[in-house]
Write a protein that binds this DNA or RNA. Structure first.
Lengths: 170, 170
DNA sequence: ACTATACGTCAGTGTTGTTGACATTCCAAG
DNA sequence: CTTGGAATGTCAACAACACTGACGTATAGT
């Protein structure tokens, strides 16, 4: 707090945004926004027997079809056991297909089935609708700033995975 | 996707940022950034017997000292049973104090003890450090955009609670 | 007195994370 | 070729934290 006051004591606006008060507001904004961000798909999922973890897995399988379990593990940042439980139900329910690797038969390559694609679409439609509304309300320049700050907030290691997804998608 | 292409068919950049691909990137950025955002306090908490839920409770009690249980419930958006489990341990460990209301003796007003303040400070220091670094990397204009988009992404009901916290804090 | 509100608690369940143990497969050193 | 280690994926058990439902107590307000 002393820190923040000192910054503002400089009188300039250039450092004002780094006061602890501003930082706390950013933290709270992040908390409330993330809740809104996940609320719509969560609502849909709660009717089914799935949760947020299933959504995440399907999102990234859809994003990088044929990816291996290990690959997905690094992106999601959970243990393989945790991911496996999720994948097992998705495979059992016919939403995800797991194919033994040709080059390395230890690997499993993951794909969405048509049913899986349909559900993923439904979930991400809801999430994109909110994102689209927020983007539209805020305007292009705000969106650019939004993305810049988010990228700076990621762990360095994840920036790699994020960038690869970003560049491959276009 | 057809949606996005059609927008870009207008030729202008004004709608280009609303392509599904851009929205998906925003979704992924949000996911990775939120993970980074919670990573530091989570690390500290994992050594203690506490979790993210304890951190959230302490954050908002610190932010609005003397707040009632019901108030906190609305902000956190969890059930009272869930919050109670967390508060019970925090009170038992002497980090939070619960005082019977003067005007309405049914209410319990919550405060951080000195120990509670110390832990909250330690946790939010870590989180603010990351936020500060991200803000500094991105610059003031990006930060403004960041906040604008986050506010637009919240549930409408939460914008009220957020605004009240924001305005009271300054 | 009666009803509503605020808070606490017990019991049960589901999702999602964890660790530990184990099976399968690949590859390289002997 | 065999053996041992590393990588990949699976099964089981457990902890954290959310949920619902039901109930109890104290207090407020009509």
């Amino acid at each position: 707090m002393a820190n923040g006051r000192m910054s503002s004591a400089h009188g300039g606006e250039s450092l004002l945004f780094l006061t602890d008060e501003q930082l706390r507001q950013g933290i709270e904004a992040m908390f409330f926004a993330y809740r809104g961000f996940t609320a719509d798909p969560d609502r849909i999922l709660s009717d089914l027997a799935y949760g947020r973890a299933h959504h995440r897995a399907m999102h990234f399988v859809n994003r990088a079809p044929g990816t291996t379990v290990n690959n997905l593990l690094n992106i999601l940042g959970v243990t393989k056991q945790s991911l496996n439980r999720v994948l097992r139900t998705l495979i059992a329910d016919g939403l995800v297909e797991s194919k033994v690797g040709q080059a390395d038969r230890r690997e499993r390559h993951l794909f969405l089935t048509p049913d899986g694609k349909a559900l993923e679409q439904k979930l991400s439609d809801a999430q994109r609708a909110r994102m689209r509304a927020a983007y539209r309300d805020a305007g292009p320049e705000a969106v650019s700033g939004f993305r810049t700050v988010l990228e700076a907030m990621m762990d360095k290691e994840m920036r790699g995975a994020y960038g690869r997804l970003r560049d491959s998608g276009t």
